[in-house]
Lab assay of single mutants.
Amino acid sequence: EFTQISGYVNAFGSQRGSVLTVKVENDEGWTLVEEDFDRADYGSDPEFVAEVSSYLKRNGGIKDLTKVL
Rank of each mutant, 00 (worst) to 15 (best):
D38E: 02
E35F: 12
D64M: 09
S18Q: 06
A11V: 13
Y55P: 01
S54M: 11
F2T: 05
E1Q: 12
N59S: 07
R16E: 02
V68A: 10
D38Y: 03
I62V: 08
Y55Q: 02
G29M: 02
D36T: 14
E1L: 11
K63A: 11
Q15S: 08
D45V: 08
D27G: 10
S54F: 09
F2I: 05
R39F: 03
Y8P: 04
G17I: 04
K67F: 15
V49I: 13
F12I: 03
V52S: 00
K57R: 10
V49P: 00
N59G: 03
F37T: 00
S14V: 13
D27S: 13
S14W: 14
E34K: 11
S6Y: 14
N59D: 00
V33G: 08
V68T: 11
S44W: 02
D38K: 03
A50H: 09
Q4E: 07
L65Y: 11
Q15G: 05
E28V: 10
V19K: 05
G7S: 05
F37K: 01
S18C: 12
V33M: 08
N26S: 10
G13H: 08
E1I: 14
Y42W: 06
I62R: 09
T3R: 14
S6P: 14
R58F: 07
N10V: 05
V22M: 00
N26H: 07
E35P: 01
G60V: 01
I62W: 04
E47I: 05
E28I: 10
Y55L: 03
E35Y: 13
F37L: 03
T21C: 07
D45H: 08
G29N: 04
S6M: 11
E34I: 14
N10F: 06
G61H: 02
K67N: 12
Q4N: 08
V22I: 10
Y8W: 15
G29S: 03
N26T: 09
A40K: 12
Y55F: 15
L65T: 13
Q4W: 08
V33S: 12
K57D: 15
K63E: 13
R39K: 04
G7E: 05
V33L: 07
V68D: 14
K63N: 07
S53A: 13
A50G: 06
F48E: 00
L69R: 09
V9W: 07
L56S: 00
E51N: 08
D36A: 12
S18K: 04
L20T: 02
E28M: 12
S44M: 01
Q15P: 04
D64Q: 08
I5T: 03
R16A: 06
G7W: 06
G29E: 03
F12E: 00
W30I: 14
